[in-house]
Amino acid sequence: MSDRHIQFQTLSDLYDDVLPADEREAVRRHLQSCEACALEYRRLGDTLKLCREYAGLSLPLDGLNDRTMSKIRSARTRRLVLRSLPAMAASVLVIVGVGLFSTGTVFVRDRATVAGSRLSYSDSERVIDIIRKHNATISQVTGEYVEGTVPVSSFNDLKKSMGFRRVAYMMVDESMPDENVHWGDAIEEVGHDTGQPVRDWAPLTGTGASRQYVRFRVFR
């Protein structure tokens, strides 16, 4: 059988125990009688043993928890502060990649470039400009959308100035913490000839006089 040595991929499958039973027996028998293949299989085993040893390492990650948590805390504080400012230059916006995760796709946070994401830089700037002119605050800019908050009284004007874009929005209380804001999947297209919504926007969260702001996301 020496002219038909076992292929590496078969050895790898044997190692992971994903070979069909009959093939597995044949391979085992070959390994018992063929030194070359047995050596190869041992080397694979040694390689993966070293990998496991490396994987088991606990390298010193001193301060990782503390540093990460303090960044998380300060990012949250910063977002709250940002929201309370009336107008904001695009350059100081904190750009966070809130992932819109479809299967296997993640939009990576990227401080340096809004460009290259799906919302182009110039388009983001345009949106940001429009938003600023309408007494709104901007809380996030991502590759997918710009998020902001605007008084209800300015919202209709803002919507009309948007041009043709896709927007999601909901009524909020300005003091409402982030945790309580849940975005539905519905996105409305604005900027049609009539200036009217394509369809009614149903999932407004809550009602009542205290909710006088609209939080919105303008999508590319």
Binding site: L61, L64, R67, T68, K71, I72, A75, V96, G97, V98, G99, L100, F101, G104, V106, V108, R109, H182
Partner: peptide, 28 residues
């Protein structure tokens, strides 16, 4: 490593629970 955890935290609300958390975290 730090950035990945921060990003995970920021994106947590978009975790749809259709997969295990670990799988989602590893994709990030």
């Amino acid at each position: 490593t730090q950035e990945v955890f921060i990003m995970t935290m920021e994106a947590l609300r978009s975790f749809r629970r259709e997969s295990k958390f670990s799988t989602w975290f590893y994709s990030i």
